[in-house]
Design a protein around this nucleic acid. Sequence first.
DNA 1: GTGGTCTAGACCACC
DNA 2: GTGGTCTAGACCACT
Lengths: 226, 226, 226, 226
Amino acid sequence: MEEQLERRTLDTQTADLLRNQIISGKLGAGERLTEVQIADQFQLSRGTIRSALQELKKEGLVDQLPYRGWAVSELTIRDAFELQSLRSALEALAAKLVAQTIDDTKKKRLNAAFSQLCLKAKSSNAREAAVADYDLHFCTVQLSGHKHLFDMYKLMGGQVQRYIYEANMLVENGDELIAQHAPIIDAIASGDAKKSEQLAYEHNEKEGHKLVDCLEGALIKRATKR
Amino acid sequence: MEEQLERRTLDTQTADLLRNQIISGKLGAGERLTEVQIADQFQLSRGTIRSALQELKKEGLVDQLPYRGWAVSELTIRDAFELQSLRSALEALAAKLVAQTIDDTKKKRLNAAFSQLCLKAKSSNAREAAVADYDLHFCTVQLSGHKHLFDMYKLMGGQVQRYIYEANMLVENGDELIAQHAPIIDAIASGDAKKSEQLAYEHNEKEGHKLVDCLEGALIKRATKR
Amino acid sequence: MEEQLERRTLDTQTADLLRNQIISGKLGAGERLTEVQIADQFQLSRGTIRSALQELKKEGLVDQLPYRGWAVSELTIRDAFELQSLRSALEALAAKLVAQTIDDTKKKRLNAAFSQLCLKAKSSNAREAAVADYDLHFCTVQLSGHKHLFDMYKLMGGQVQRYIYEANMLVENGDELIAQHAPIIDAIASGDAKKSEQLAYEHNEKEGHKLVDCLEGALIKRATKR
Amino acid sequence: MEEQLERRTLDTQTADLLRNQIISGKLGAGERLTEVQIADQFQLSRGTIRSALQELKKEGLVDQLPYRGWAVSELTIRDAFELQSLRSALEALAAKLVAQTIDDTKKKRLNAAFSQLCLKAKSSNAREAAVADYDLHFCTVQLSGHKHLFDMYKLMGGQVQRYIYEANMLVENGDELIAQHAPIIDAIASGDAKKSEQLAYEHNEKEGHKLVDCLEGALIKRATKR
DNA sequence: GTGGTCTAGACCACC
DNA sequence: GTGGTCTAGACCACT
């Protein structure tokens, strides 16, 4: 196995590290972050930390409180709804594009992602299934070959994953999860662009309501726990 | 007294300035930018300039050439197509959302933007008409109240406007321009979400092909001129 | 590209804004200003406002009422006389210096300012003529290249302009205004330092008496109106 | 002897202290000042120090280097010339005004200042003579009763005194110093405004050239010493 | 030589 | 005292 050189800049690495902590909930919503404290912790200068935080701000994972510091952003139902509706629009577009340009290579990668989803769906770990779900959609976006679409999708990635973690009962039934995605994958693989787009869009619409309901429960539970 | 104080930072101001020059073509595609030269010109430090250029890079207006500098990004047919397809998806979503939440205030703002489009469409200035076209769509995105959607739309704004400037023959027929938008505005104003979404989507699909054709001509012409 | 970036601090901007309102009479003599109210209005903190008010205090435009706040300073005949006599001394010096260093560039700028004065003098707007008068003298001070002189002149500027606004009947006869200034401009343009100084001094001496008379009327009128 | 209560604010006291150190050369031209260092030294907060430095900046004794700190301003020939020419203009005005309003009280104060000058002129200490010279002129400005003139004169005071210290061979001949001032004092005391103004002006003009010559030597010497 | 990256530290504005 | 903004300059890698 080849050694991989670390060429990521310190601010990127810092952003990645913090992002993971936020996504995984180690840094909880509302938690305050101070530039100096992080700088001390990682032995970096304030400028580097600021750069990392700006990146996370762009991704919607932290809020900048003017003259008072930074805080991990709150998870609101509104955001969940907005993100889900955006996903619907973007993933439908991706599905259409992949169907239009489907070839063996793409079929292979798509099937691999779908297989992974099937695997996780049958396991008992709902969270992993949700991640596989996300990965599958991420895969279609990648395969669409649409650079601008891909960039935007990545920009939303952190927040989306965070919701998935937070609301990990998203999928109560693995078989249903598979049943939902199978026709989309089929439509794409068969090159039926219109149908792919339609199915992807409807899937997300449906999921959106479920997600919102689910989060509503999760957030209320979280709130009452405090 | 509603005077406004200038609170923009120097990097933001620099980015705005450069963005305008790129959009308007004063800085042409492929033109090289050096950090030091800009820093000297504006009497700012390199860091400030870098920050501005990073912003423009995010917006796709400049490319970073590793170890060699920066250049105004090229206008490719591929980008035009990508941007147009993204607009289709995002604006359709916006149209649906506005229709779902339409009220008198929103109707008023929408009509104002549409009137402006009609005015410009009837004038002989195709570029201004195209700008009014963009402004109308921008308006629907704003009125959708969808923050994440709005942010994404803004991120694309610079590139979109650039294409509009470059291909200012987009509209050969003002009346047609009005005829195309009128039904969408009507659908939104009447609160018909499904129809709004559908019409907005179809409108953009159609325009997409025209834009690409148009740009193909413009870019080829530009290339041969060199 | 000669775009200018905004580098003014917020307190400077606030001071500029308030200065204009005082000069133009929107904030009248004696009017009370409270730090908190201004801070709220501009969405700034009190410290920033204090800094701006201190600046205006130095310029004599506001008075600090210990433990009670701030107020727009009153216009007194005594101040008018003092300012006019100071102007005499400073502008005579400026005229001399410009004459000593006159060149084509300076002649051009001087003539431009003088032309503006002629234009306004012939119009019916006495206030604009007075402003053009002030601008012409300001111009000579600038052209003198005497930094300390310039700073002092600016320090008086707000108060002087305020008098000009208040007493806008300063010039009852446009032609006379032109006739008064023409020989000074000629002397400067011809490089006759001694004559320039002499004429400038005498001009201001004469104007001083007229200004005081004029203000006497204006202030009395203002007082009786209350 | 009665105890004198210190009612001056801390920033004023700090400004006075620093001003003296600059005038007397203990803080040399070009020397860097940092807010934090001064704050530590005097056990004051940075805000207080900033306020004092702003005051000295207004007086031209320190320069603010944006984002880099403060520095004692440099002594240039240009500044010396500018200050001297300004003094000429302002002191001539003062002399005229005092002559116009001369009375026994003023005569007394004027004579006291002049006697002091005579005393010091005959001593061997050129610097003290120069200070007495300055004090005499300061006295006329005070006696003029012209508040704005007085404020401006004070604003220049620090820089003027600094030059006097730097070039303390200004007066090589005490008798001549007395001979120069006597006719001015006489003219003022006799109430001859025109003559007072004229003599004061000419005196300063003459002194100006000498000062510049003198400083040229002093500054060159200072430079070569380094 | 220029960009890529990071640090140290200054003033600015707010709390 | 903190964050907000900007500067200066170090050192390294690449062209």
